[in-house]
Amino acid sequence: MPSLNMVQAVNGTLRDEMRRNGNMVLLGEDIGRNGGVFRATEGLLDEFGPERVVDTPLSEDGIIGMAIGMALYGLQPVAEIQFLDFIYPAFNQIVSDLAKFRYRSGGQYPVRMVVRTPYGGGIKGGLYHSQSTEAYFTHTPGLVVLTPSNPYDAKGLLVSAMRSPDPVIFLEPKRLYRTIKQEVPAEDYSIPIGKASLVQEGDNVTLITWGPMVQTCREAVALAGRENIRVELIDLRSLLPFDLETILASVEKTGRVVIAHEAAKISGFGGEISAQISERAMDSLRAPILRVAGYDTPFPYALEKVYLPSPERILRSIRKAYNY
């Protein structure tokens, strides 16, 4: 079994699916000759040619709009947006068209495509190469929103995304691209959409997170362990739809919940998870639900490390929930 980092896992998964499915095409900026700015599409131009690995002009609305038109005619595009921070010129295409085509046409025109995009901080990218704005998309009915946190899940989730009949926003935590290596089976496998991963079992506090924060939360869980607080760590993986069953089962066990994400706290997706738990499991709760998040500022450059939730900050909330 090969040991791969996340960007290698994404690359290999794209290649396998391209080999399997002749209707699959990739398009985006610098994805061909250059292999993508993070090298996620390295080598694919040589194998599949410029008609299937399409270097586009610099225009995000052009990329997404073109991909929608390709998909409607029966191709299966995987569009790459270089950074999630650059997706906004295509926001209209995503929100007004991609998400609504199936619905508004009464099912006549479903759009089957994937938008891959790196997101999150930790690379000294400042305001426009660091943001985590997943909530814009989870607030849009019609989209599926996925985010892996390790190479194994990256493959399994990307396979599901590419075979999904619905449009998928696939968020890749860029600071984890090359930091974790993992055994990734060469054979075909997929991880079902809407199913969370129980990273670690515990019965004192439930810690819910996703994407880049999973690694940070693992550290927080280890720190809590030294204080004899047993934390159950859930990696949602799929934000829309989300796995309420796994969340509620854990909350019933622990009665204490901390939610951690990189995005700004106000109107972040953690608020939705918190609301779902309060609506459905009030009787199980033994402490207020706490959120650890990015501050409600734009993403800072020099103070990036202060902005990003640290294991220590998460630990403080775990303690607070535990001792309430």
């Binding site: 991909a67 038109g69 005619y73 209209n92 068209d97």
Partner: peptide, 17 residues
């Protein structure tokens, strides 16, 4: 105007096929 660029994608797909 969102549809204008989608038309280009469909034309691309037709040519591709």
């Amino acid at each position: 105007g969102t549809h204008i660029v989608q038309a280009v994608g469909t034309a691309y797909a037709a040519k591709f096929k």
